[in-house]
């Protein structure tokens, strides 16, 4: 089965319920209640966005968001932001470890939070030598977009484990 790849400027979306949207093609074709999802939620945040219907069936894939009308792009990104909640860690306030269970108290762009990491090796991954993704004991995700932009103390605490 061939996938229906389209460009961002071929559609017009209307956000319905935070993560759902109606989509209209310039040809007049309409889809209701579609759920946009990233096909590369880790490596390509604004590329290859798939649109699923209520049964989880893919209707089409938007290759890139770059050529979308700015307002449309903003709406779609807002939709995706609602779905993909990955707080960005801006500071590691404190970190303690007791027998392989790490307790992180962090400052994020969505407020302060404390979480546990069961295994540092498996739960933290560094990309492109600066971006770090973290998964806590409850499978929640966090991101450090650039470890070298954090304060020195946070860097000193995190980098030895990377």
């Amino acid at each position: 089965m061939s996938r229906n790849f389209i460009d961002g400027n071929e559609i017009r979306i209307t956000v319905k319920d935070k993560i759902f949207c109606d989509v209209e093609f310039f040809t007049g074709e309409k889809f209701e209640n579609l759920e946009p999802r990233r096909l590369f939620p880790v490596s390509g945040l604004s590329e290859y966005i798939t649109f699923l219907d209520e049964n989880g069936e893919e209707q089409f894939i938007v290759r890139k968001l770059d050529n979308m009308e700015p307002l449309q792009k903003e709406l779609l990104l807002g939709c995706l932001e609602e779905y993909y909640r990955i707080p960005k860690i801006t500071r590691l306030i404190s970190r303690s470890e007791k027998h392989k269970i790490w307790l992180w108290n962090v400052e994020t762009d969505r407020g302060n939070y404390t979480f546990e990491i069961i295994n540092h090796i498996q739960s933290m991954k560094m990309f492109y030598d600066k971006r770090i993704l973290i998964k806590d004991g409850n499978d929640n995700r966090y991101e450090i977009p650039n470890i070298y932009e954090l304060d020195k103390r946070s860097q000193k605490l995190i980098l030895p484990d990377m």
């Binding site: 993560i19 939620p41 609602e82 993909y84 909640r85 990955i86 707080p87 929640n140 995700r141």
Partner: peptide, 14 residues
């Protein structure tokens, strides 16, 4: 009696 359907919608990280 007013609820037709109730469910948890799992997203990414929330």
């Amino acid at each position: 009696t007013n609820i037709a359907e109730i469910s948890v919608k799992r997203m990414y990280g929330n």
